[in-house]
Amino acid sequence: MDMSLKEKSTWVSLISTIGVFGYYFYGILGLVGLPVEVALDNALSLAIKIITIIVMLEIIFQSLLAVSHHREANLGNDERDKIFNDKSHRISYVVLVIGVFVTLGRIVIVEYNPSFTAELNSIQIPMLTAHILLLSFILAEVARFISLIFYYRRGR
């Protein structure tokens, strides 16, 4: 399979994002049932851990790719890359907006129906609103990577 540097770089970002944030959300679900303070502390240390991992992974793999494709790396994005980037950003934006509206809807429902608060609290996911927003952002990024790869494979 003949892939450009940008396509390889997108594959690296897709795999590392799914792997690292999949691990993070799996870890967060594992905190359900713990006392709030303990869950918050664990969530924070997990967040620091995965941010460090994803930054390291991106630096290592993107640097290796840039070194092995130095000519393309110096060229930057050509017109095809820019067009595909624009298209995939549009898809990503839709996913992000859906996530933002889900979050807003949840906030409004909780505000107007305090009885739901007790039920929602029973889920006991630390910083639930922040995590819904984070999940929306990650899903938007994954949608962007998948659509980019799709355009590179299929063409336009």
Partner: peptide, 25 residues
């Protein structure tokens, strides 16, 4: 690709009619 400032894969995509170049390209 080097003469026109794009990647080799872009030239390949144009040749295979998988990508329509801009007027400038």
């Amino acid at each position: 690709a080097e003469l026109v400032g794009v990647t080799r894969q872009t030239i390949m995509a144009i040749e295979k009619s998988k990508y329509s170049p801009t007027l400038e390209l």
